[in-house]
Design a protein around this nucleic acid. Sequence first.
DNA 1: AGGAAGCCACTTTTT
DNA 2: GTGGCTTCCT
Length: 708
Amino acid sequence: MDIAQLLDRLNEPQQHAVTAAAHENIVVLAGAGSGKTRVLAHRIAWLLTTELARPHNILAVTFTNKAAREMQGRISQLLDEPTQGMWAGTFHGLAHKLLRIHHDFAQLPQNFQVLDDSDQERLIKQILKQLELDEKVWTPKKAKGFINRHKEQGIRAQAIEIQSHEIWYLRMRDIYLAYQTHCQQQGLVDFSELLLRSYEIWRDYPELLQQYRQRFRFVLVDEFQDTNHIQYAWLRLLAHPETAFFVVGDDDQSIYSFRGAKVEHIQLFTEYFSPSRLIRLEQNYRSSGMILAAANGLIAHNSRRLGKKLWTQGAAGEPVYLYTAYNEREEAEFIVEKIQEWTGSLQQVAILYRTSAQSRQFEEILLQKSIPYRIYGGLRFYERAEVKNALAYLRLAYYNQDDGAFERIINTPKRGLGERSLEIIRGHARRHGLSLWQAAEELLAEDTFSKKIATTLHDFINYINTITQKTQIAELDEIIQYIHDSSGLLMHYEKEGKDEAQRRKENLEELIAAAKEYPKNSVEDGFDPITAFLSHAALEAGDIQGDPNQTCVQLMTLHLAKGLEFNLVFLCGLEEDLFPHKNSIEENQVEEERRLCYVGITRAKQKLYLSHCETRFRFGSRELSRPSRFIKEIPSELLQVVRLQRVATSFHATLAKYPTGTWVKHPKFGRGVVLQTEGNGEAARVQVYFPQLGNKWLVLAYAGLQKE
DNA sequence: AGGAAGCCACTTTTT
DNA sequence: GTGGCTTCCT
């Protein structure tokens, strides 16, 4: 594509951004739907076509794998030649690549393993056990949070300042230290470690940094508002007078502060990377006028904004519809009904929700009406137990020292090597500083075990060795096929029931397919294919499930929806304590929730439905839900209330029948006495004390309560 | 050693 | 409602 063509489909501020001079540092403050990805892709295409840069000089960073793929796709659409030599990917992906190349600087073994989130938690759990700490007090979750938070701040365990009054702090520090030591010995790297370690090698080896500074003359960052401390610090190391930074972000779409992201980095950038220029993209090309106005109205309730007002030349379009459902099931039924009325492509329909758990209701109804759908997120492909187990066989075969893999599969499927035998192996390993594998071999040689155990263990080791032999001759997918056929995992799952086994079998088959597809990209990086594939599995938890070509309704959390757009959007569960989520309200994070809602609204191009329920089943009982504050914050003239005809019930009148102290009867719980009542005119509930059960809240419409 | 039954805590969001 | 974990029984 020639230069003129690159520019003529851009508006003025977009052109300014794309054609900025080679020495300029640019911040693009880009509102939702204002062509952010487009500007980024065009900027890269511009740099290459004008020959300001060769692909080799470009570093392009995104946050999600999805965004990385999309950017790559756009660039290759704009350019005729391939962009080989360009580094483009997520922070984690790039950090990983850097560490593989410079594993010696990083003091890591060449085949270091990447721990995903659940691996990390598992490992911490084991360490807590080793330290003999009570898991109830020092929960793995809290320890994980502590460790990751500190790594994200660039703080090593040794560097944590000890506040003597805080025993909790001291103990956490010990856990962090033990974890860190263990990972180092085992060659394990968790997500935050990828970033921290990459930062450290650049910081500590100036000659290495120099090499990259000279190479990456153009650094482009997407979703800059989502950078955390260590990512920002890493980028800052690259800064020198010859480097041009081009960062794109939207403070109103910052939704990852729980992971350490700081909007302030946008402001800090302008101070540190001077001289720099701020370009605002405020023209929205995506949503109808009404939808945009709703988004603007909502986000105006946030303080501490950089300030930006989106506008559109497009038509006002339809109002935003608001639906009030009785309960989550009815909410799902309503939404599915509206989907059935929709005449456009199902691919253009999205159901968005705050928490993954909400997807279940929709799944059921969609299945029932045979509407094809696809759920993103939730339990992702490589996180599934059967997939992780199959990969653990591969890991152990390829790398005998992998204790995590050993622990995972030594008795999966059940082969009679239980906790007792394992504890003996663990003890021996610990005493002699061996891996579990080595310990098992030594113990076998020393004839410690009973005949039965020894035979089983021997068989296990031999079996793994047969896989090891395969790894030297066979292709990746053949190895996994072999594991699939011979490990007994399938039989193991068949005991769990037919449907379950079928699903797991399909997943394992998909894993083989994924392995077959894989080698292409890994060869280029020059890493050995097995290590590369395993890292890929951890880094890209992967939504390879489902046929991407099939047109289907898209279901996802709001976090996953960022960067996408749909003609018809359902934003559901707009209820206090769910959205905004209870935890966020308690942690003073309502502004972030509001931004999340803003992200959701701005996904819609033509039609947007908001919905909430009067009651919802949560935490094991039916709860009364109040409409989200966000609904009230959208200017009411933009909303059109839709409500199915139904029998009007005066809940106030119903409530009056159950004053405090009334004796009642419940079909299941028996006799009880009313303690208190509450209601909002649309629904009502009473708290009843049942002598055998204690207090229970019951929603009147469902309780089946009778006055005694 | 392994299975069944019962108990518990948990459900924010992601690389 | 659910899944993970412990406990107890075989």
